[in-house]
Design a protein around this nucleic acid. Structure first.
Lengths: 348, 348
DNA sequence: CCACCGTGGGAGAGCGCTCTCCGTCCTCGC
DNA sequence: GCGAGGACGGAGAGCGCTCTCCCACGGTGG
């Protein structure tokens, strides 16, 4: 409509011609650098508006060697070998939603876009590496579902900018953010004891996950410090159903229980109906404390007392760490640990 | 380590030199086109392996005018004006996780990457448009949280390839996928009646959302066809808490209720404790049927009878539609409607 | 025996941008 | 009054790739 021949979008050249200046000057105005006479600047801006110019990202990337995007990798999701299954069934866990939201929230004002990737198989991991090497993304933030994920090491070896959500199981020279799980578990222990609970058990997460181990250890240490050296434990898998099953077992072995610390809210959500089913009123007979302060915590009856995990803030910091590595490639890995807080609701 | 001077990755030129052929030939091999002598092909492949070459995506995009990625836009999320808030609190809803998983699952084997974007504000919408115009993504799939979302129209006007999850409130010339909400609601009605329920109410979704309206209308029509012209309804907002509140209201006005159709699982999950709290046993006194077959359906006690919404398949189809539009820009919009199915569990 | 065609492969022109040079002009200071 | 130096803007060389030509060669039919 505006032009006759080319239906493709206007280029820097077109704008330059319209404004009567050189390409370089238009580029300077667009990128806001150096000293360009304000009158010229104005006419360039008008020409940009007139032509409807938008810079072509591919061309820019080609010369700047920056993609302006980062890979947001959900790693270790799904089963090995389930090549054609839908990935991201994990995304069903509200926890990932919060991480993604936090990362995206930090990146957005900086004009960086997150590219979603799943890396559950060896092939998928190779794709992530290729993706980064091809320069389609400047780096990767990684959130793993299980501890044995080899991707962090692969990234570190390849020298690609990356940052992790949660400390890796084996030490890897890579930046990460995490919460102080031990301190959070101590908060839960202190709270249950303060409420007068004395026969306290715990439902842990899968013990190959460092976070789950740390929560259990922290809880036991805190209990021991208060003179409770033995704390019965049932291991769960961080899912609703594993929470149910673990609660059944714990209750069968320790019917006299009057308090439970559950290592995440989803499992606690599963534990509540089991307690009710066995005639235990919560919080009257048994006090329950979860971990994460996820949406599950308020989608329970009674609403869950829980340990707040500042997931969004952590995810934002995660993104910040990554961008720092992208900015200055040589940088040494750093880790940032966040403090948890107790949120008291109705279940304790 | 391998080379002395350039630490940057090898280019087509380097590979060509190593294989003793021209750039063009290497390009042909890489892209698997035209007829290249198999001996040459072999030596080129070896050279690629030796140099560790990976094609530079920006350079390729520059000439092919294809980004190889699409925008996955969550639209209408969060409140207008909450500029600095974390976006994607919606991601907490497992429904979005399923959509994202389905889209990603389809795109992945095709080498297309989804770029996550949020478009809750006018500014964010402008960014999405600019993103597409800049050629950073070849098109957009859109999943909206509310009906008044202006983004579909903006995309259609701009002639950018796009596809929607769920039919837009106002007709827009754009492809979409949806489920047959009316048929799903009829399934629920038939089932409740078949189980002998006679005093049946419903909790609807927000009535400005077309899907919510269609479910309500379908339910009422099916009930009317069976001789139940009046069906009491309480409007909810598709969230856990709105489900609780709606159930309270419905029960207050119609204490004799023996069946409820709830327009999504999350609200049904909220409704169950309310029924229990008011002394109604589920399913003995009241039968409950949800909608979606989300993870919430199995994370309830009793487990929820619900209408299965094949979200992953729909999302895959959504991605397919988009890619079709990217492939052949002139294509007319099409819509694909999926059939729902009843999943009987314990709540009815 | 020559015109013709099909096939394999090279040369080279860009794609749209950034950025380094370098030239021009204007303003001071001595 | 003249040279130094700063401010401004243009020319042009690429970034790494694709793809259109075009050439060379061998086989075929008239």
């Amino acid at each position: 409509m505006r032009r006759d021949v080319p239906p493709s979008s206007p280029t820097l050249e077109d704008v330059a011609r319209a404004a009567g200046v050189s390409r370089a000057t238009v580029s300077r105005v667009v990128n806001g650098i150096r000293n360009v006479d304000s009158a010229l600047q104005e006419s360039v801006r008008r020409a940009i508006a007139d032509t409807g110019y938008v810079p072509n990202r591919a061309a820019r990337s080609l010369v700047t060697r920056r993609a302006g995007s980062v890979a947001l990798v959900v790693s270790g999701a799904g089963e090995e070998g389930a090549e054609h299954a839908f990935p991201g069934r994990v995304l069903t866990d509200p926890f990932f939603g919060r991480v993604i939201g936090g990362v995206a929230g930090f990146l957005r004002p900086r004009g960086v876009h997150p590219v979603l990737m799943f890396a559950e198989t060896a092939r998928a991991r190779a794709e992530v590496l290729a993706f980064l090497r091809q320069g389609e993304a400047d780096g990767a933030v990684l959130v793993s579902t299980h501890a044995e994920d080899p991707l962090p090491e692969l990234l570190a070896e390849a020298g690609l900018p990356a940052a992790l959500f949660a400390r890796p199981a084996r030490p890897v020279p890579i930046s990460y953010v995490d919460v102080d799980h031990r301190a959070g578990a101590k908060l839960a222990a202190d709270h249950l004891l303060a409420r007068g609970r004395r026969r306290i058990g715990t439902i842990s997460g899968p013990l190959d996950v460092p976070a789950a181990r740390a929560r259990l250890a922290g809880f036991r240490d805190a209990m021991a410090a208060h003179g409770h050296p033995y704390v019965p434990c049932a291991e769960g898998g961080f899912t609703y159903h594993s929470g149910e099953a673990a609660m059944e077992r714990l209750l069968a072995e320790h019917p006299g229980l009057d308090g439970v610390f559950v290592a995440n809210d989803l499992m606690a959500q599963g534990a509540l109906p089991v307690l009710r089913h066995h005639g235990r009123a919560v919080p009257r007979d048994v006090g329950v404390v979860g971990f994460d302060d996820s949406s599950a915590a308020t989608a329970c009856r009674p609403a869950l007392t829980t340990v707040r995990h500042p997931v969004e803030d952590m995810a934002a910091e995660l993104a910040r760490l990554l961008l720092e590595h992208v900015e200055r490639p040589g940088r040494r890995p750093t880790s940032v640990i966040f403090e948890p807080a107790l949120v008291v609701r109705d279940s304790s």
